[in-house]
Computed example of a mutant assay.
Amino acid sequence: MSAETIALVIAGAAAGGLINGLAGFGTALFALGFFLNVMPPVQAVAVVVVLSALTGLQGLWIVRHAIGTNKRRLARFLLPGVLGIPLGVLALSFLDARSLKLGVAGFLILYGGYFSLRTRLPRFTRPTPVLDMLVGLAGGVLGGAASLSGALPMMWCALRPWPKAETRAVLQPFNVTVLALTAAALAFKGAYTRETLLYIALALPVSIIAAQAGIAIFRRLPDAAFRRLLIAMTLISGTVLMLREML
């Protein structure tokens, strides 16, 4: 493993860990740009999902009380999401993954751009259990089809004026569960070779430390600023995804 490879892996782990600690998702968004320079795509994704799932456990701990007091809300997203994963995998047999990613990227850019320009964010307060379940199901389908499980839940939660801990208590468990199942599927396919495990051993400590820095920032953010962060993340996510697929 060359010095350049080590530097890129460490940089990707640090960037992904920081944003995971700050927002509760987004490891792949910030880490893959570094990892894909030194790893083939399948290997890079295999490393990222492990980092995302294990690093995300720290975020789960800081919102454990919000998770405990909102179990039904989380279940409305998570259970349909898990059911949607195999549906997304099946959908790959007749869907073009690249076209799907470009479509989702365009939607993220429009959504993030529109709400980033608004001085006041919407306050969608009434309970919507059926819509929550549909968003969770769609997130699972997108996760299985294109590794985009967090896109729709992120957009939906950003519309709700929930305290930041309650918002994260939905997004982080959802993403950790979906990514853990993805890691298990990749392990079943033999993706975790000796070289891949070496990359994980190098990246994981860096990612965990960087996530602690992100968590420290998260603790200091007001609720409104965290909602703004989610909106900005949708715009950044869509732009990066669009560029990655087009270039």
Rank of each mutant, 00 (worst) to 15 (best):
L18D: 01
N70W: 02
F226D: 07
R227Y: 04
G56F: 03
I62D: 13
I200A: 08
L152T: 01
K164V: 04
S93W: 06
I200K: 02
G113T: 12
G88H: 03
T196H: 07
A138Q: 08
A165T: 15
E4M: 14
L92K: 14
P161M: 13
M1I: 13
F124Y: 14
A158I: 00
T125R: 15
L204N: 00
A151E: 09
P173M: 09
F77A: 00
E4A: 14
M1Q: 13
R120H: 14
R73T: 10
L247A: 12
A14Y: 06
A169Y: 11
D223K: 03
A91K: 05
V38I: 13
P153A: 12
Q172V: 02
M133Q: 15
L92S: 13
G12T: 02
A31L: 10
Q172H: 04
R168A: 15
P80R: 01
R168H: 07
F218Y: 10
L121F: 04
A187E: 10
A210W: 05
F77D: 01
V135T: 10
A13T: 10
A184Y: 08
S2T: 14
Q43W: 09
I67G: 03
S93Q: 13
T193R: 12
N20R: 15
A210Q: 00
F218H: 13
G140I: 03
F30L: 15
A210F: 04
S93D: 15
V240F: 05
R160K: 15
A28Q: 00
P40R: 12
A31C: 11
A3V: 14
R194G: 10
G190V: 07
L230R: 03
G150M: 03
R64L: 04
A66T: 12
Q43P: 06
M233F: 01
A225G: 07
E166W: 04
V170F: 00
Y111A: 07
A66R: 09
L8R: 08
K164Y: 12
L8Q: 08
A146Y: 01
I208S: 06
F115S: 01
I10Y: 07
G214F: 04
G103V: 05
A145K: 02
G16R: 05
R73M: 14
L197R: 11
S93A: 14
L29C: 00
Y111E: 08
P161A: 14
L229K: 02
E245V: 12
V82P: 02
K189F: 09
R123A: 15
L90T: 06
M154W: 03
A191E: 08
C157D: 12
L142F: 09
T239W: 01
T234V: 11
A216I: 11
L32M: 15
L78M: 01
A169N: 07
L100V: 12
V130D: 09
A211L: 03
I10E: 06
L92E: 11
L243P: 06
L131Q: 13
L83F: 06
L229S: 05
L186I: 09
W162A: 07
V63H: 00
L108H: 06
L57A: 04
S116E: 06
A146L: 08
V141Y: 06
R64M: 07
A13Q: 05
G17C: 11
E245R: 03
D96L: 07
L92R: 15
A158G: 08
A185H: 13
V89S: 04
I62W: 11
G106M: 11
M233C: 05
I85G: 01
L198V: 12
M1P: 13
V63R: 01
